[in-house]
Design a protein around this nucleic acid. Structure first.
Lengths: 369, 369
DNA sequence: ATTTTTCCTGAATCGGCAA
DNA sequence: GTTGCCGATTCAGGAAAAA
């Protein structure tokens, strides 16, 4: 007779994959098996503690985060809450798993301090620089133009996943730095119901995309204990990762389900939804993929269709078992010392082949001026 | 007979201005009078916890921070140390003073958490983006390309200095954001003795310059409890601020003294231009009427001609049976909590509508000088 | 249909002073 | 401590409206 396996060895199949647990974050995590997920991405309440109303110089009203879920009785209460969920997160993570947490100065120091105290090992802090932050209307402080993310492994000696090459390719053959620029979530990407935003703090997909691409492998299980409207689930689906969401609010859950079901390989409409840095004069091919202008799996050929490569999620391309940047594959396949991949490679359109440089131009036009 | 003043009221003259206290940070601070300094800038040990030696891909050796002053027995010991010096800092600061602390992910979460626990009120966290960071030689993480600064006042309701106009001017007439880009300290600025850098973590003067310019007034006293080679002193001198340094190591002290003596203060005129345009003398709207620049009975409208009021002889304005100041009517008619009547209300000219603020400027030009 | 202008909004710990 | 008045204060980008 087969004995019941101890909790820590329960098979992964018992995880409620690709679904939302509509429940309180901590109690839902307690029901999950130990050492069972590869990554946790968490966007916990920030505990903003806002004062009175705020108006813009033109008199219009600022729509602030006033939801109950962001209210805590005290700093100590927030600290306690933070340590509770981080403790459960640690139990659920595999030994070679990792955690990402995003926050602002209101809460990130409490989060980071708890992460260190609980035995996690911080690998990087990453800064999300907002290209279009809300200004400081009263002129009393610096424009709060960034948020902070913490990436930590299970311990000083623990292993973790980091797809170094993917990041370097995504960043046009330069090491990816700890400061990332993205616009805030708006436009078509922002979920709305009756013209009103569904969630006050929806995160941009491009941000989660980069995190999952950097720190998970295809098929990995990603848990988001503060699922909200399911950005993590939508990106995970897009990138071929499994996901589990925990979310208390029924409204957010229904919006998330609808959204993730609709998530598809991106089409042209995505161009409008996820704009990206406008500063960089250089555009990495990875940025084109990250923004959905080309999807992973797309096939590129040269103008005469003699060579063909397949686009991968990190902005590299592949031919047989050779992989590399668009420039490298162009030179290798031709046997040439160098190649400008932007003009060499083409993609199929209803009007025929077009150089991928057109996409770069479109991207630049959309993001510059 | 005059009784000895309590510690909290000791005259400022007792502060060891523009000098270095060569002593342990906490004990030196204990000897300073309470509520006596305007700002503290602190660059405490980062508690880096480095493993073995690190080499570059070319085999060369990376000169890491291995000094004793950066070693702590445990995370708890670092935490205790942090709370000790932050507590003393709080005692020494004036009620309307402020503190800046710089750190990396190794220590900044502990620092920020302690700052919040001790009753300081965080105003911003600021990211120093390094334009030329050291790469991640092993390709195991993101390039650690930034450090974090925390700016905090003495409490939620405490006042603090922020030279908004100076920052906006410095940033090409756009609000200064919370992410600042500077190169790391090198070249001529980097202090060396016999070709060897004197201090492993010397900060760029441009960074301190911006902080002092933003958050102190000329003549303010700035204390740096981890003085090192005296960047804070050199910048304070240049900007016409007073400084106090605390530094344990004699080598750093001598280098700092030499450096600060060589630093040239900006002359007064240069300082003036960087200060905010000293709040222009206030002009009552009534003065404009009194001088005939607008006559009683004149009609003012907003830029879109949605609202209109009539000017009265005493400088009040009227709409229907509502009367009051230009500001009050602006807010009442719009239903807004506040309104700057000078920019909201316009008067008719042959060239079209013009804000009445133009009249104020004309009046100021005519009466000043 | 195309270009120009206006409008709207985003995790925000967002006054100072005198009576 | 409270109230009330004076008057200082916004950037980027997408979408809708107007020309």
């Amino acid at each position: 007779m087969v004995e019941e396996l101890p909790l820590a060895q329960r098979p992964l199949a018992e995880l409620p994959l690709d679904s939302i647990i509509m429940q309180d974050c901590v109690s839902a995590m307690r029901a999950l098996p130990a050492k069972s997920v590869d990554m946790i991405f968490a966007d916990p309440p920030y505990n903003l503690q806002l004062g009175g109303d705020l108006s813009r110089p033109d008199g219009s009203h600022v729509d602030a985060v006033t939801d109950d879920w962001d209210k805590f009785d005290s700093l100590a209460a927030y600290d306690k809450f933070t340590r509770e969920w981080l403790t459960e997160a640690r139990r659920i993570l595999k030994d070679d798993g990792a955690i990402w947490v995003i926050g602002s100065y209101h809460n990130i120091f409490k989060v980071g301090s708890a992460i260190q105290d609980l035995g996690y090992w911080i690998l990087n802090d990453v800064v999300w620089r907002k290209s279009n932050p809300m200004p400081n209307f009263k002129g009393t402080r610096f424009t709060n133009a960034h948020e902070t993310l913490i990436w930590a492994s299970m311990g000083e000696k623990a292993r973790y996943t980091f797809n170094y090459r993917s990041m370097k390719t995504l960043n046009d053959e330069l090491q990816m730095r700890s400061d990332w620029e993205f616009p805030v979530c708006g436009g078509q990407e922002r979920l709305k119901r009756g013209g009103v935003k569904v969630h006050p703090t929806q995160k941009p997909e491009a941000l989660i995309y980069r995190i999952l691409l950097a720190c998970t492998k295809p098929g990995d299980v990603v848990l988001d204990p503060f699922f909200g409207t399911g950005t993590t689930g939508a990106v995970a689906k897009r990138l071929g990762r499994r996901w589990i969401g925990i979310e208390r609010e029924a409204d957010y859950c229904s919006a998330a389900i609808e959204r993730i079901e609709a998530a598809l390989p991106l089409d042209e409409s995505a161009l409008k939804t996820m704009q990206s840095p406008k500063a960089a004069p250089r555009v990495a091919f990875g940025t084109i993929v990250e923004n959905g202008m080309l999807v992973a799996g797309a096939v590129l050929t040269d103008a005469k269709r003699r060579y063909r490569v397949t686009v991968r999620a990190d902005g590299s391309v592949m031919s047989g078992d050779t992989t590399g940047s668009i420039h490298k594959l162009g030179s290798v396949l031709q046997g040439a010392p160098a190649c400008n991949g932007w003009t060499f490679w083409h993609y199929e359109t209803p009007e025929g082949l077009k150089p991928i440089d057109d996409l770069r131009q479109t991207y630049l036009l959309a993001t510059q001026i």
